[in-house]
Design a protein around this nucleic acid. Structure first.
Length: 169
DNA sequence: GCCTCGATTGACT
DNA sequence: GTCAATCGAGGCA
C-alpha cells in the first residue's frame, strides 16, 4: 500500500476529514483503519485552537500539511490530529476512532493504545513507522455535529463510517 | 503572576 | 446521570 502524499492533506479540511475515513494509520508496529474524524478550521471556528490566532500550542496547525498535531488536555489525554491546508493556513482533522484489535474507539484511547504522545507533535506523516496508508476502501460516510465541543458551529463536521462498530459512542 | 478550563475517560451513585 | 483526575496553555491583570 502507498503512503498518502502531502498533496492529499493540502486541501480543504472538511474534504480531507471525509476522505481519511477508511485509510490506515500506522505507528511503529501498530496499524488501524480510521473510522471516525472531525474537522477543525482556524478562522471562524470558535472550537478550534487556532481560532485566537497563532499560539504556542496551535502553531502546528498553521504549519505545513501532512504533519501530526498532537496536544495534551484534561491533564491526562493526548489527542491526535492531522494538519491540513497549505502552509500558513490553519486546519486540522481530529482522529477520533480507529478499527484495530486494540481499544481505539475514542480519541484519547487510540493515542494511548498506539503509544502516541507529544513527542510526535509536528512529525511528518511520511515515514514507515508513522504515516497514513492509502486504501481502496469506499466507506459509506455519515456525519453529525462534533462531540465534546462547547462552542460548536451549527454544522456537521464529524464524519464516521456508517455502521462501523469501532466508532466512539 | 494567577486563575480557569479543556476537541476525554472511566468509575461511581 | 454525575463527577474526579490532573496539568499546561491561554486569558487577563
Amino acid at each position: 500500500m502507498k503512503i498518502l502524499s502531502i498533496s492529499f492533506y493540502a486541501r480543504d479540511t472538511k474534504r480531507v476529514a471525509q476522505e481519511l475515513l477508511g485509510k490506515i494509520l500506522v505507528h511503529k508496529n501498530f496499524r488501524g483503519k480510521i473510522v471516525e474524524t472531525e474537522a477543525y478550521f482556524g478562522t471562524g471556528d470558535p472550537a478550534s485552537h487556532a481560532f485566537r490566532g497563532l499560539t504556542k500550542r496551535s502553531k502546528t496547525m498553521f504549519g505545513p500539511p501532512g504533519r501530526a498535531y498532537v496536544y495534551f488536555t484534561y491533564g491526562m489525554h493526548w489527542m491526535l490530529n492531522v494538519v491540513t491546508e497549505k502552509d500558513g493556513t490553519p486546519g486540522a482533522v481530529l482522529i477520533r476512532a480507529l478499527e484495530s484489535s486494540l481499544s481505539t474507539n475514542g480519541p484519547a484511547k487510540l493515542t494511548k493504545a498506539f503509544g502516541i504522545t507529544g513527542k510526535l507533535n509536528g512529525a511528518e506523516l511520511n515515514k514507515r513507522d508513522f504515516c497514513i496508508l492509502d486504501s481502496k476502501d469506499k466507506p459509506e460516510i455519515a456525519s453529525s455535529k462534533r462531540i465534546g465541543v462547547s462552542n460548536d458551529l451549527n454544522r456537521n463536521l464529524r464524519f464516521y463510517i456508517e455502521g462501523n462498530k469501532f466508532v466512539s459512542k
